[in-house]
Write a protein that binds this DNA or RNA. Structure first.
Length: 444
RNA sequence: GAGGUAUUAGUGUAACAGUAGCACUGCAAUCUGUGGCAUUGCCAGUGGGAGUGCAAGUCUCCUAUACCUCCCCA
């Protein structure tokens, strides 16, 4: 029989037998956080809680959904986040709700709504939760992602608040043993000086023809001139070299200049590794003055970013209130922790003892016996579905139990139990009613 | 939103258009009262859909997802 026919047969048989089922997947750009990844997340939660507690930041949680307008007013109509990246829901009552694309605007909304400005100022708040942006996913860029953020709201605009936000953001990342961090920092001025600078920049770029400036920059020139400074195109980079810079020539007004200078002085004092980056601009409209991003070596996206946003409260219908904050991308941290070999993380505590049963009677008593140990705070695990002593011991070994407790037919009859030291292999039979006490003694 | 690459058991990988293999993991037996080692066996796979062809993991198209360069951003 020729091969070909045989193959054909096989194919028919295979297709006839198996109807292919398409399994469901998580939505595009949205991921499960599996048990083996949880230790990283738990570590980040723990470190951020500790840092927040030490620096006296109180936790705040706001809804996942907010009125769309909060972001439209705060982040800015011209930005990608608003124009293309919001998941929008229309309620039956006609409200436009969105899955929050970031955490700061909702917090200001909450701060204003609940009159937190009447408590002692500044209000120091932190949050940790999922954010949503409808965009094309890539490594380090997801449709659902998580941020931890710190906000200092109210009081005056003392640059020491800027420095403290930068410090704790930096320390949080450092605490996770992420190496070679650098802080990029810049000041983007205020309502008084930025418009003039923006015009200056526009007129500079307008000197160049369409052939000299890339398409993106031609668009930026109209929509968001500050972003011109950010372009990665080679020609544009050349042009940029001669561009007016905010930090020079009194492009920043006197008060912004002083504010930035003082901020840097505090950071110098802390000896944080920063670079003055006059080309750093942020995509969100609400920023003014200090802006910063934190990077680790070898990753070209920021792990964290933030800045001052004194106008946000005003944009949301209140009066101007000094505020500065930061947000940290948890997925990006996890990714770096993995690649930089942050090992040895585990959430579950190692079991102290492992209960092995042999025979029906022992199996019947085992759940109750484990409860005795739980009451005494001793972690006892088991594999009660397995019947053979061997396989139960094998599991005990794999789970790295210190002791094994063997309850067999003979022991049930005698009301005793065997305690086996898993390292030495030494074992001893003790009365069952003294089991907890004896295990405790051996665990010391 | 624009271009590009990839997708083979749970994981990591191999296969010139011609028998889908290996390693780890898991399960089990060797060994129904003593683990780690070992041996043997078992479970499990070409993302989905169409096309070309005697024959498709391999070629073509569509689709889904992931990733890369942009846009933008945590």
């Amino acid at each position: 029989m020729p091969k070909s026919i045989k193959h054909q047969k096989n194919k028919v048989v295979r297709k006839g037998k198996k109807e292919k089922k398409t399994l469901f997947q998580s939505p595009k750009g949205m991921h499960d956080i599996l048990p083996q990844e949880q230790p990283y997340w738990e570590k980040i939660r723990r470190v951020s809680n500790q840092i927040a507690d030490f620096y006296n930041f109180s936790r705040i949680d706001t809804p996942i959904l907010e009125m769309a307008e909060i972001f439209e007013r705060g982040i800015g109509e011209g930005t990608d986040i608003i124009e293309k990246q919001m998941f929008t829901i229309r309620t039956k009552g006609g409200d436009r709700l969105v899955l929050r694309p970031e955490g700061t605007a909702p917090i200001i909304r909450s701060y204003l709504q609940h009159g937190l400005s009447r408590l002692s100022q500044p209000m120091k708040l932190y949050y940790n939760g999922p954010m949503f942006r409808y965009e094309k996913p890539q490594a380090g860029r997801y449709r659902q992602f998580h941020q931890v953020g710190f906000e200092t709201i109210g009081g005056d605009d003392d640059p020491i608040f800027d420095a403290q936000i930068i410090l704790i953001t930096y320390q949080l990342i450092k605490e996770l043993k992420i190496k070679n961090l650098t802080i990029q920092i810049n000041s983007i001025g205020c309502k008084n000086c930025r418009p003039a600078y923006r015009r200056k920049l526009q007129s500079y770029y307008n000197k160049f023809g369409q052939n000299e400036i890339c398409k993106d920059c031609q668009r930026r020139l109209v929509i968001n001139p500050l972003r011109l400074l950010d372009c990665k195109n080679e020609n544009c980079a050349l042009i940029r070299e001669q561009a007016p810079i905010l930090l020079n020539n009194h492009n920043l007004c006197q008060s912004c200049n002083n504010h930035f200078k003082e901020t840097l002085e505090f950071i110098d004092e802390l000896k944080l590794p920063y670079n003055l980056n006059p080309f750093l601009v942020r995509g969100l409209d609400y920023y003014n003055r200090t802006v910063f991003e934190i990077f680790t070596e070898g990753v070209n996206v920021a792990l964290a970013s933030g800045g001052r946003y004194d106008y946000l409260a005003e944009m949301l219908g209140s009066r101007k209130r000094a505020a500065v904050g930061s947000s940290i991308g948890i997925e990006r941290l996890v990714e770096v922790m993995k690649t930089q070999g942050f090992g040895g993380l585990s959430i579950r505590s190692k079991p102290k003892a492992f209960l092995i049963h042999i025979g029906e009677q022992a199996k019947k008593q085992s759940l109750g016996l484990i409860e005795e140990f739980r009451k005494s705070g001793i972690k006892v695990i088991e594999s009660l579905w397995k019947d053979s002593l061997k396989s139960q011991l094998r599991v005990a070994d794999k789970e790295e139990a210190t002791l094994s407790l063997i309850l067999g037919q003979k022991e049930v009859f005698e009301e005793s139990i065997i305690i086996r030291d898993m390292r030495s292999g030494a074992q001893e039979t003790v009365p069952l009613r003294k089991a907890v006490e004896e295990v405790k003694k051996r665990l010391k």
